[in-house]
């Protein structure tokens, strides 16, 4: 089958750019190219414990990608509500790594700075990263406190009784503690960030044959067909 049949015929520049970033991400998923094999059976949606709360089902994500509707996906709630239980990935008859595909969509949305319908997930992710960078280990108390300060202050009061119970059973570390080699960890993180940024221009440079399935390696798929 000719490649052109499998990618949308008309495409805006935004769409093409989004596809390019997304497909770059898919390349970094082991067996990511299997996204081509989707037969739209809906097993993923049926297996998902939270699909009832999504605006676009997991099956529809792939359909929309094929139809050239990346922007609709970027604005959806779906990519943020996935709890990473991997039920879809386990059951997909085509072996598609759907959870990882959703991660790739999340990263694309973050890189292209799409405003999310559920911004709280991004808030949590950013605070998590900040927390880890500051101490090297997660200090849950700080994370949760900052999260509710930013998203819903009133909710913090609802957590008082839980906090009390945790305190009474010695399950709260009042102060965060840094790991000893915190400096070394920071250097690793800084370098890894630089590397990630170094790869960004490759993703930004738009090339027309980069926005279809061809981009994720026809060859590789052929090689893996036996698996």
């Amino acid at each position: 089958m000719a490649e052109s049949l499998r990618t949308p015929f008309f495409m805006s520049k935004t769409e093409a750019e989004l596809r390019q970033v997304f497909l770059e991400q898919v390349k970094q998923i082991p067996a990511g190219e299997r996204i081509k094999r989707c037969i739209q059976c809906g097993t993923c949606t049926g297996s998902c414990p939270v699909s009832y709360a999504m605006d676009i089902s997991p099956r529809e994500l792939i359909a929309l990608f094929r139809a050239g509707e990346m922007e609709t996906i970027m604005k959806s709630r779906t990519i943020w509500i996935c709890a990473s239980c991997y039920s879809c990935t386990t059951r997909c008859p085509s072996g598609i790594k759907i959870t990882d595909i959703i991660y790739a969509l999340k990263r694309t949305a973050m890189e292209k700075q799409y405003k999310s319908k559920s911004p709280q997930v991004q808030v949590l992710a950013n605070l998590f990263i900040e927390n880890l960078m500051a101490y090297g280990r997660l200090h849950e108390g700080t994370l949760i406190r900052k999260y509710y300060m930013k998203t819903n202050v009133a909710k913090m009061f609802g957590l008082i009784s839980l906090g009390r119970k945790m305190f009474a059973t010695k399950r709260i570390a009042i102060f965060p503690k840094k790991i000893k080699q915190h400096e070394a960890l920071s250097r690793i993180i800084k370098k890894a960030q630089e590397i990630e940024i170094r790869h960004t221009p490759e993703r930004m440079e738009y090339s027309p044959d980069y926005v279809g399935y061809k981009a994720i390696g026809e060859m590789e798929l052929e090689q893996r067909k036996g698996n």
Binding site: I102, Y103, A125, I129, G136, I179, L185, E196
Partner: peptide
């Protein structure tokens, strides 16, 4: 000795290279 946070799903799903680097440590 002196292990660090693995980054959990939260990190892995948003920043791949960094999360791989910290869990690899």
């Amino acid at each position: 000795e002196d292990w660090n946070c693995c980054g959990a799903t939260v990190y892995m799903s948003v920043k791949e290279t960094v999360s791989l680097a910290i869990s690899s440590r």
